[in-house]
Design a protein around this nucleic acid. Sequence first.
DNA 1: CCTGAGAATGAGAATCGTTTTCAGCTAGAG
DNA 2: CTCTAGCTGAAAACGATTCTCATTCTCAGG
Lengths: 132, 132
Amino acid sequence: MAHELSLPDGVRATAQRRAVLRAVGESAGSFTVAELHERARRLEPRLGLATTYRTVELLRASGGVHPLLGEGRHTYVRCRPDHHHHLVCTSCGGVEETELCAAPSDAELHRKHGFHPAVHELDIYGTCRRCA
Amino acid sequence: MAHELSLPDGVRATAQRRAVLRAVGESAGSFTVAELHERARRLEPRLGLATTYRTVELLRASGGVHPLLGEGRHTYVRCRPDHHHHLVCTSCGGVEETELCAAPSDAELHRKHGFHPAVHELDIYGTCRRCA
DNA sequence: CCTGAGAATGAGAATCGTTTTCAGCTAGAG
DNA sequence: CTCTAGCTGAAAACGATTCTCATTCTCAGG
């Protein structure tokens, strides 16, 4: 369960960044940057909002978090390094990961559309077990 | 090819809304609201930015456009009413639609996760024929 | 263990996209 | 044609994100 998040190579390990990393690791579902900031601030009160944004962007670029298509506000979820997609509950806002994936094959996309896929994002919206 | 976009029932057909509709219809790939506003303004110079936002929201709610997970700014693509997904070229920004779809089955999602899927969004990012 | 270079930081200003406000305008039912 | 609820533009307000810059801190190399 506890895949450890880590910073990309070549960036410095500061107390602030560690606090943001831990806060992401402790997060259950989706979160906004402001929520993350508030949570990480309990671990490191000197953490500023700007640094939280900067760290989230680092994590996004290195695949540690994934942005969701939210209504209005931007939310993120923590990501595992392996392939997976998200089950977003429209009732409670919770996000589950699933390894289930059945995207069209690269070959089929290329044959039908001349398209070379690189990555795909599949977010499934619905109702989770708890809210059913 | 030319599925006609239309306004939801019960809203008035004003010159401004018609201009936005035409601008969406003419759009090739993805677009931001600001770009759409600029384009629609050529058809109807008295169109304000706020109305463009309001009309895009109308279209989004009625399924005429679909928001994309962009880097930074929010972009939209025009949508057909039937089921489809998007092939987004990360090189030229063009968006193609595809009817190819292979999301995990409702039954499997329910069995493995207790999740009741309602809708899903699959956006495939890569390189289009032209940019290959 | 020091030290220095430059990476990272917080606070707050600036910026950007989006929504709201409100007084005036207009589509369209009757 | 008339009347009214719905729609509008302009500008202000708003919230999220980025930038600026003086200061602090990390850590590679002595």
